[in-house]
Design a protein around this nucleic acid. Structure first.
Lengths: 183, 183
DNA sequence: TGTAGCATGTAAATTGTTACATGATTGC
DNA sequence: GCAATCATGTAACAATTTACATGCTACA
């Protein structure tokens, strides 16, 4: 139930067309809630139907023609309500942790290389986040919105830091001799 | 594409019926790949059809009757292949980070309480993991399987630690005055 | 017998993924 | 004109979630 709220948030930050939203979901908001353009178009249709957003009158309703949306008061109200709604954290579902566990049963052949590959991907992602932090939040942010956006970015940075640490540990363990003794 | 492999792993660790698997997916393996009993029964059917697992002959094929499954060689082979297959990490999709971002736009009313609730949930989960670590991995594990299982558990512990740290930070920020100056 | 709990399943709705189709605009 | 790109969509499928249905077993 988060995609509609992700879209409402993005549209409140800046009214956009479907494709512009898709691009923004490839970065920025998309770092924390990814979505494809098909999901976005379908959801824009539903939100419009429910009266939470509307197409800006300027845009003609023709195929292939740009169509910009903005949030209506009902949409803002729905988002406001959602922000503080109790919703439990989802149970972890991570294929990589699962694979390490499976490796315990059928052997870890080839897994170390895959872990190293992931390690490098997470290092890139961390570098990207840190560049954004340096660019967008050089000093103590002045507005509440900036403070919260920075907080979310810190979440991303710390998550990547976790993965880098754990993957380093894991790669080390997988390379260890089966039963080491002498140095 | 991970659920069938999670089930194969669980069945290799110990042949089980659908309901036993469901219980094991509420802990142990389920800490890293959750699944409901409906998903499990459907997937057991598919895996049997594909010849990767089979029902133990002892079990009668009657409704309401317990039916135990074990992994066939083809199933083990499929799992072995999957372990080292390249598969990119999924983009992060976290409703809570999203909600903090939305709070930047529509206001954070009520969010602090929800964050505190999550903080407490993550603290419980961490305590549970640490109890398991103490119980199952008191000394340096002897077998490769134990080492890998411990590694996965460490992943869970470090993830919970990340959340506890970040949520602490977030709750602090949300309670700060808008523009503090004097103590 | 009847009821509580165990065990396996079906059905429907929602969400997410992959592949493809179509119209508009721009530059050559 | 036409190729490339922007922009919006459709269709089909797979995975996940939620709710419900059915049969067996034990035991009061």
């Amino acid at each position: 139930m988060s995609l509609p709220h992700a879209i409402l948030t993005a549209l409140l930050e800046k009214p956009s067309s479907g494709l512009e939203l898709t691009r923004r979901f490839d970065k920025s908001i998309g770092y924390f809630w990814s979505a494809t353009h098909q999901q976005i178009y379908r959801e824009l249709g539903r939100l419009e139907e429910k009266g939470l957003i509307r197409a800006l009158p300027a845009a003609q309703p023709a195929r292939g023609q740009k169509k910009e949306y903005e949030v209506l008061p009902a949409g803002r109200a729905a988002l406001t309500e959602w922000v503080s709604l109790p919703e439990d954290p989802r149970p972890v579902r991570d294929p990589l942790l699962l694979r390490v566990r499976a490796a315990g049963v059928v052997g870890a052949s080839g897994l170390a290389a895959e872990l190293r590959r992931h390690l490098s991907l997470h290092r890139s992602q961390l570098a990207e986040y840190e560049a954004i932090e340096k660019r967008d939040f050089p000093a103590t942010p002045a507005t509440e919105e900036d403070r919260l956006r920075h907080l979310v970015l810190r979440g991303g940075i710390e998550l990547e830091t976790f993965w880098i640490g754990w993957l380093g540990e894991a790669v080390g363990r997988l390379s260890e001799p089966e039963r080491g003794s002498a140095p």
